[in-house]
Write a protein that binds this DNA or RNA. Structure first.
Lengths: 225, 225
DNA sequence: CGACAGAGCTGACATTTGTCACCGGGGTGC
DNA sequence: GCACCCCGGTGACAAATGTCAGCTCTGTCG
């Protein structure tokens, strides 16, 4: 949103720990669909002399085109956004905007999301429960080529393991997520109802669920959806 | 968006619309469980001369005890918080802290939540998709005795109508929410399995769902859960 | 090549479920 | 007093679902 007028000179010592001999601030692209939060985060980041938000996006596609145009140093992406989610945007940015590091900030950090994010080349992954200082430090660290993953999320991801589902099982489970009857799932995915039942049964067995609906709930909890 | 630092004197006509002859800022209690968002909102509100955050709470009970101790002018409450949700806190504050107006800020604004909030005496209800200016204006309006409800949410609430479920149906539906089999629901609520099935069948019929799981999904969407 | 795993399908069976009809008790309101 | 609605329950029946065994392809890997 705004930048206070501030002295344009070398970031006068103040709060920001400018790196030795580099007075240029880190240029951040902020993507977050909730207007209020987006503005609030910009205000927060603006308190640091060595960080500057050069662009704000409300959707995934908007974030991507802004990244192409502005070539920021760091893209801070919300996980859930309209059109394109944060991980997809990160993947595209890695491919198209070489100098730009990406990080994900999210409310609902599931183990599965973390894994997908890391394999998409994301360098930082943290929940919105962290403090402002941590956020700023992670931005600096990611910009410097480092990585940061929230310790608790990392522990969960390790203990949770990978998704136990085969690709097909995951497909079927996803279609079952809104409580549709098996017949409808079979039509949508062009399979025999019997096959759908077998997949669902297998999936439920793997996660120790009594029925597919419980299986869906469990899969959601782990971010396997 | 922001208020420039401005002279500290009597808010010189500029952005801060201090009420005639009252230079004292509005004292706000901010309750929000996500640390980062809490800090960011505080930073954002701090940009306004006429608003000051005098306390921050991370949980519902904490918010309540802080409200008792600090007697703020306005309590800005997140809807979903650990221990006690925003509406419960608002209700308690109405009863115990007379001078304090309450408002709810939330990510997931369902019609049902709005209704419950209003009947709990909440004066402002808005989603996190609003802009920072709106937030500040609503704080001022609520403090002045006014009300504000997000227009889109209000429209949804009106068109959605009240929850069609009887109290018992809602109970059973809630227990069915995580995909438990009927037998288990019956045990937890100490009912006969047949009765549970009847309630679920009635509930599904009321919302036009094909089964209880779809009914749960629909009820969630409207905030009836 | 042969073993193996996953995708896709079928059929049979027991269980769970949704649906309906119907019962009684306890409020509430006309 | 009576109608009405919610609560709680029973029994019966049909449909949906979960479970299991077994079948054919296909690709991959040693």
């Amino acid at each position: 949103m705004t930048r206070r007028p501030g002295p344009p000179g070398p970031a006068a010592g103040g709060g920001g720990r400018a790196e030795a001999g580099s007075p240029e601030p880190i240029r951040i692209l902020l993507a977050e669909d909730e207007h209020l939060i987006r503005g609030a985060l910009t205000a927060l980041l603006g308190l640091h002399d060595d960080l500057v938000v050069i662009g704000e996006a409300a959707t995934g596609t908007q974030a991507l085109s802004l990244a192409r145009a502005l070539r920021p140093d760091v893209a801070m992406l919300d996980l859930q956004m309209p059109e394109l989610d944060g991980i997809a945007v990160a993947e595209a940015i890695r491919a198209e905007v070489p100098g730009c590091q990406t990080m994900i900030v999210t409310s609902h950090g599931r183990p599965g999301h973390l894994k997908r994010a890391l394999s998409a080349g994301v360098r930082g992954f943290l929940p919105k429960t962290v403090s402002a200082e941590v956020l700023a430090d992670v931005v600096r660290s990611v910009h410097g080529g480092g990585r940061y993953v929230d310790p608790q999320l990392a522990a969960e991801a390790i203990s949770a393991g990978d998704s136990p589902f085969t690709p097909r099982e995951a497909d079927v489970l996803e279609l079952a997520a809104d409580g549709a009857p098996i017949e409808e799932i079979a039509q949508r995915i062009s399979l025999s109802p019997g096959t759908v039942r077998n997949y669902l049964s297998a999936a439920a067995g793997k996660v120790g669920a009594a029925n597919r609906h419980e299986a869906v709930a469990i899969a959601r909890r782990y971010g396997w959806l």
